[in-house]
Structure formats: structure tokens, C-alpha cells
Simulated scan of single mutants.
Amino acid sequence: MNSLAPLAPGCVALVGGGPGDAGLMTVAGRAAIEQADVLLVDHLAPSGALAWAGSAAEVIDVSKLPRGAFTSQERINELLVEHARGGRRVVRLKGGDSFVFGRGMEEVLACAEAGVPTRVIPGVTSAVAVPALAGIPVTHRGVVHGFSVISGHVPPDDPTCGLDYGALVGSGTSLVVLMGVANLSAIADELLVHGLPADTPAAVVARGGHPDQEVRAASLDRIAAAATGIEPPAVTVIGEVARFAVPTLAPFHPALLEETR
């Protein structure tokens, strides 16, 4: 499929907006915004990208803010279908990538059920981009060979939490937590209970990709206290790679940096 092909009237394009800086969006994402007749935008989408929309384009805020403005997913699905059936070119602009905790597939399925064609334009997920903007690689040769991305929007003891924290600790991967600011203390405690050492490096990157980006770094047993006052959006990285956030925390042992074979 040609991601730069013109959007057809009556089509919905799900556009991943990346980590917050409009300059980090894809070329295809920008092209879709420029063609849109209507844009459904959430609060994590890069606001600077709206400057690319045509003067006649309608912008609809469909944010889901904790303790704030809230548009249900059902209503978002209805709006996508309604505007597409009206012959408009619809862009659903999200932060990060639409398929990484973005409910993008729910919207694709709703459109498919209604017979509305969709196009998915991936974005740079904040799970990788935000740590990178803070100088943290989620993998590093000789240190860690994988990473796990989890949602922290519910605490570990919540009945709806389907995560196996023991398996996460045993995986030996970097752990990237999205939407976990409110539950960071409980998440850290659960990881400690399952055997992750208390001195494991951790870092919280708040407002990644924005001019006021902030990084707080500490050991796992102290990261929740270090992140006091941080408000979403923020990404937490737990594991040896988090040392790169603040190089003065401690140097890597040279053996960790040797190429593994």
C-alpha cells in the first residue's frame, strides 16, 4: 500500500502522532493531516501538527483526561463513522502509535463493521522515543537484549491487571511502563517482591518531546519518591539502561559493554 496515496472521501486514517514533537511525525502522517476534512484529536497528539491542517478542516477534541474532559470510546467510534459516511476525509490523530495502548484496533473494527474504509499510518511509539529523547536506549549491546512494554494504568493488585510481574522480572529485559505515574509506587513494590534488586536503576521521563521535558532518576526502591510531583504524560524505564539517563549515577562495569557473542 502506498502510504502517501491521497485519502479518499469517506475514509478514516488512524495517524500515530509520535511522542509529542510534531517534527518527529512521519511524512505520511503529515500528508494525511493536510488532506483531512475533520480531525479527531486527543490530548497526547502533537498540537503543532494541527498547523498543517487546512483552514476549513474541523478539529474535534476527543480527549480522555483523568479527572477531566472525557469522550467515551463508543462516542469516538460513532464520530469516525458519522463523518466518514458524510463523505469527509477523517483523520484520527493520537499520540505515540495507535496500536500501542491507543485503542486503534477498536476504531478499525468499528469502522469495518460500519463498512468504512480505514488506513493505518503508524507513529513512533513513546515507549521507545521518550526514553531515547532522554538519552536512554531501551536495549544496549552487552547490557540487555530486549525490552518489555507494559501499561501501568491499574495497580498490580487490581483484578483487571493481567500482568505477570514475576515473569517480567525473570525476563531479563528492560521494563518500560506507560501510563504508570499514579501507580509507580505499587509497581515498584511489586517488582521488588518478585526479586528485582532494590538498587536497579530507574528513570521517569515526563513530557517527553516537549520543551519542558524532565527526567528523574533513582534506584528502584526510591524512584516513586524521586518522581513525586510528576504529572502525566510520563514514561518510566526500569533496568540497567536507565543509568544512561544520568551518567553520574554510576558507571557501567566495562564487562557489561563488551560485545557478547
Rank of each mutant, 00 (worst) to 15 (best):
R103Q: 11
I150S: 05
A134V: 05
P137D: 05
G170S: 12
I150D: 08
G180A: 05
G135P: 02
I121T: 06
H194N: 08
E58C: 13
E106N: 10
Q73R: 14
D189K: 14
N77Q: 15
H194E: 05
D189S: 15
M179P: 06
V176K: 06
E78N: 14
H145G: 08
D158T: 07
R103K: 12
D61V: 14
R103N: 09
S151Y: 01
D97A: 10
P131N: 06
S98E: 04
N183K: 07
S126W: 13
S151M: 03
R141T: 00
L175N: 01
V138D: 03
G86W: 11
N77V: 08
G166A: 07
D157Y: 13
S151D: 09
A182P: 01
S72Q: 14
G96W: 02
V90S: 12
Y165M: 02
G170A: 10
R88Q: 13
V59Y: 06
F99M: 15
D199A: 15
T71S: 09
G102D: 06
D61G: 00
A114S: 09
I76F: 14
V176D: 04
E113A: 15
A56S: 15
E113H: 14
R89M: 02
E78F: 15
T173P: 14
G146C: 04
C111T: 10
M179Q: 02
V169R: 04
V130L: 04
L109K: 10
F147W: 03
S174Q: 10
G115A: 05
A84N: 10
